[in-house]
Amino acid sequence: MEEVSKLWIVIASFIVVMLCHFIYHWSNPKCNGKLPPGSMGFPIIGETIEFMKPHDALQYSTFLKKRILRHGPLFRTSLFGGKVIISVDNELNMEMAKTNRIPGITKSVARLFGEDNNFLG
C-alpha cells in the first residue's frame, strides 16, 4: 500500500512540473527575431486583468508604461484570450494606417463592422 501512495506522489509531482513548464513556456515564448519581444501572461486570460485596470485617460496606463520600459514601443502580449501586438510608435501606426484600403482604419476594424457600413464610410 505504501508503494502505491509513493507512486501517486511521483505521478502528481510529474504533472505539476509539466504544468509549470507549460505555463512558463507559454508566457515567455521565443521570438527568434521574427516577433517583437513581450510576455504572454497566464494561459487564456493572459494579461487582460492588468490591462483593464482603471487609469487616467490623458496618460498611458501603468500596463503600457511597464511594457514600454521593458520591451520598447512595440511588444506582444495576450489580451482577451488572443495574442496581440501593441504598437505605441506613431510612425509605425501611421504606416499601418496608410497601407490599408480605408485610410486610418485597420483591416481588423473593417472586418469587425463589415465592408459596407455607415460607421466607416
Rank of each mutant, 00 (worst) to 15 (best):
V4A: 15
I49K: 15
P29H: 05
D56P: 03
F113D: 10
S108E: 03
L79D: 01
K6E: 13
A57N: 05
L74F: 11
P36R: 14
N100G: 05
K66Y: 14
S108R: 07
N118P: 10
P43Y: 00
R101A: 04
G104K: 01
K83L: 15
L64F: 11
I15W: 04
M40W: 06
T62G: 11
K66P: 01
I68A: 01
G82A: 12
H21V: 11
E95K: 14
N90M: 08
L74Q: 09
N100W: 02
N100E: 10
N100K: 10
V17K: 04
M52N: 12
V17S: 06
P43W: 06
G33L: 10
A110K: 10
T62D: 15
D116V: 15
L120M: 07
V4E: 08
M40N: 01
R70S: 11
G114C: 07
I11L: 13
A57C: 08
K83H: 07
F75G: 00
V109S: 01
I15D: 08
P73R: 08
M94W: 12
W26R: 05
F113W: 11
W8Y: 14
L112V: 09
E95F: 05
L7Q: 09
W8I: 07
G33V: 04
V109C: 02
P36D: 06
R67Y: 00
M96C: 08
M40I: 12
F22W: 15
K98V: 00
V16W: 03
W26Q: 03
V16N: 02
N100A: 09
H55G: 03
T48E: 00
F42K: 13
T106N: 12
K53I: 04
G81S: 09
I9T: 11
F51I: 05
L120T: 08
S61V: 00
K66I: 02
L64D: 13
